[in-house]
Design a protein around this nucleic acid. Structure first.
Lengths: 191, 191
DNA sequence: GCACGAATGTAGCGCTTGCTACAAGTCTTT
DNA sequence: AAAGACTTGTAGCAAGCGCTACATTCGTGC
């Protein structure tokens, strides 16, 4: 029952260890997926023991919730870096830029993980659903901010773009990138 | 090493057993997901033993491949039943009808399974990827056939509709149906 | 009627799962 | 220096995993 989540002392040593563990575990999960996210492999990746993971995080569910939050942040930061700044010149360019950025190979590990999160969310797991919804909201906000300045309904347009891009990513995942490409090209010229 | 996949004798008893097993296992997987698709639960659902499943299907991978094929067929048939026949009157109606049909509650079990399949496919599992691609192709064909008669580019329009609908379904899965609804409404009025 | 292969039950192997009991270290506080 | 809290290693539990060895039953062809 003793874990140090409420340890806020000045030394800061314990929170640092926690962060280091989370960083290492996040890297492991990105590479190997949720199905290999059991205590012993995670502990090995973090350079510690399953015993210590339970000690630090309480139980596996709490660990996964925290790890998911960490990964959501990491994903957000990766997006911030990959996505263009400012505003698009047209709706078509907005769609194109965002699709191009998020479908790039550097996001493949995140997307592979993403679909596992969606699968869990779809099965009713509230931890994953909450995390996933938060990521979508954040992404939607980003798309909205990238909408061209003259856009009459930036929120609606962003929702449209997001839905298309996510559909395209799913088609990528199952090897139907041709369909995704055609759909996006059509949507871009239509705008 | 003895299994009867090549047993084509007239009695037909063995293939029947195989079909019955697949039917029962498919129902179980639809209800409980892939994560509960290990040999013992599957065997229990099929009224037999893990020992017999291995005997009949060789190993788990072969079993899952066959089960996935069975489920893809079942999904197709469910779609055939749920989707309207004939042709839509407009692109907007086409999108609306297909979204309404495939987002209905009767497809929730299929969709929960679908995202698990997508997750596996995205991680590089070829069995799942092949199965998923086949389902997408079939669905795309269906959408194309439902396009209004006057449509200049039915194939392209169908790809567009499919991408939007799949994006909407993903947003449903993570509890963002509001975004999906708005995106579809916008796409429908735009058409 | 008997022999042979197909079909099936029982038991178990080696491995991984989340988690715990117990003991021993280390570090801080008094 | 003693005491207590924090931290960690070792060993293990009960359950589940895919799969197999062995023995038995069953139906059919000679």
């Amino acid at each position: 029952m003793t874990n140090q989540s409420d340890n806020l002392d000045v030394s800061g040593r314990v929170p640092l260890d926690r962060q280091a563990m989370l960083r290492a575990m996040a890297a492991h999960v990105l590479q190997h997926g949720l199905s290999d996210a059991s205590l012993r492999p995670l502990a090995k990746a973090a350079g510690t023991s399953d015993r210590m993971l339970i000690y630090h995080f309480g139980n596996k569910e709490a660990l996964m919730a925290e790890l998911l939050g960490y990964l959501a942040n990491a994903y957000s930061e990766a997006l911030d870096e990959a996505l263009p700044t400012g505003r698009a010149d047209s709706r078509g360019e907005c769609l194109y830029s965002i699709a191009a950025a998020t479908r790039g190979p550097q996001f493949a590990p995140y997307l592979a993980l993403w679909w596992q999160i969606v699968a869990e969310a779809s099965r009713g797991n509230e931890t994953y659903r909450t995390s996933a919804r938060e990521i979508m909201r954040r992404l939607l906000g980003w798309v909205e901010d990238f909408m061209p300045a003259g856009e009459a309904d930036p929120a609606g347009a962003a929702q449209h773009v997001l839905t298309l891009v996510e559909g395209a990513q799913m088609l990528d995942a199952v090897g139907c990138s041709d369909i995704a490409d055609a759909a996006l090209a059509r949507a871009i010229t239509a705008d």
